[in-house]
Design a protein around this nucleic acid. Structure first.
Lengths: 226, 226
DNA sequence: GAATTTGAACTGACTGGTCAGTGCAAAAAC
DNA sequence: GTTTTTGCACTGACCAGTCAGTTCAAATTC
């Protein structure tokens, strides 16, 4: 699973191994490896500086690859970015869905499922902080070429949360009066911002600390609970 | 309060009137007016495209001003941006603090104060969506010239929420076990993301709808409340 | 199994264009 | 007459994308 990367002492910001056309055949693993390196280089640079401020030369240099290679592997700078987005959000939604299904299999209720998804979200952000940062920075922008990609990808992620809320209402666990989509957004925001603040400003805290704080908030154990 | 803007049919994205050195003296209002126009132009363009992708020529053009005027009024493109940030967050914190103080004066408890601040946050985002968007996009970035400005400004805003939480714990209204800073971050995130999603993807909803959904979440009336 | 061919992968110098910031003389506003 | 704005030409740096050429491992031929 972990990619075979050259010996940079950098923090692993891997966006996971890509399995696509070359799964069964022992075929072009080389190409996948360079694409992976480019993803890793691009994700941190763009998270730090933004898309426009990051040059293709920088990405190539950090990936340890010539500029031409970038264009051999991706049609353009924004295509590279779009594929990075799609790939990263794919990992996130898979992880969220897995968390929800796991609690269901273990006989947990829907609050447990939400709680497990919060943890899965935190684990994801803990592992891929740069990706998360970049995602948040681009999500609400308009007028950009990858806008449609972003919309699709956002909907995938939010839908997982919405599904759990819907099931919870159907099962009588949540009030019928909750607004599914607004509540889902709010929950996502809660996790996203708390986690980014955690990573940026108090990195010394443990994941369990953050999870505990968010759980408390979710279960209304902060504000009295009438 | 509402600025005297030229006759563009554009949505008012004003960042409020600036009172600084020219408060008492009836002095150079003219200069302030062009600065205001530049803020308005810059905030929407940067929100849409990002800082680096926005050119000074564009800003000048949208403000209906010559390029030279931009540099007559601001030392550089990033100085313009920094002052925009400081100014906008100043408005936000003032509004949050005012909401908290108003409920206190009316004899409300701390949950009421939080609720009022949620509403104040929503009202702010409703009025200045572009500013909010731009703020979120930049907040967690590192390695940029205005990083320190951003940190200061963030701390101001979060501190208002933290103060209310601290008071609530002291008054025995909130559990002693809550983590002040993490909870504050989470609450801010809840409002921020829900509101941005509202403005971006379901602009037809009313502010009251959004407020109601967030209130419910705050008071734990979503997840059973045991 | 040595010699030769093939082609996917990669390279990096180069091009055409863009943009932040400057300089300044003249006009307008106050 | 001072402050502010205008218009516009100019510079130097920077950058996305191109392309002719290189590399090398595997396939093919003899």
């Amino acid at each position: 699973m972990s990619p075979t990367v050259a010996s940079t002492g950098r923090v692993p910001v891997t966006i996971g191994a890509m399995e696509s056309s070359s799964a069964a055949s022992g075929g072009s693993t080389r190409r996948e490896a360079t694409r992976q390196k480019l993803y890793e280089a691009a994700v941190t640079l763009i998270a730090e500086q933004g898309f426009s401020a990051t040059t293709v030369d920088e990405i190539a240099e950090r990936a340890g690859v010539a500029k031409g290679t970038v264009y051999y592997n991706f049609a353009s700078k924004s295509v590279l970015f779009e594929e990075l987005l799609r790939h990263g959000v794919g990992l996130l939604t898979a992880s969220l869905r897995e968390a929800a299904e796991r609690t269901a299999a273990e006989g947990g209720n829907k609050v447990d499922a939400l709680d497990a998804m919060i943890r899965a979200g935190l684990v994801f952000i803990d592992r891929y902080p740069a990706f998360t940062q970049l995602y948040v920075a681009e999500l609400w922008r308009t007028n950009r070429t990858w806008q449609s990609t972003l919309m699709v990808v956002r909907q995938q992620a939010v839908a997982v949360v919405e599904d759990v809320l819907r099931d919870g209402v159907a099962a009588g666990e949540f009030s019928e009066e909750i607004d599914i989509s607004l509540t889902a957004s709010a929950l996502v925001g809660m996790v996203l911002v708390a986690a980014l603040d955690w990573k940026s400003f108090q990195a010394e805290r443990s994941l369990d600390d953050v999870h505990a704080a968010l759980s408390r908030l979710l279960q209304g154990r902060v504000s009295g609970c009438r």
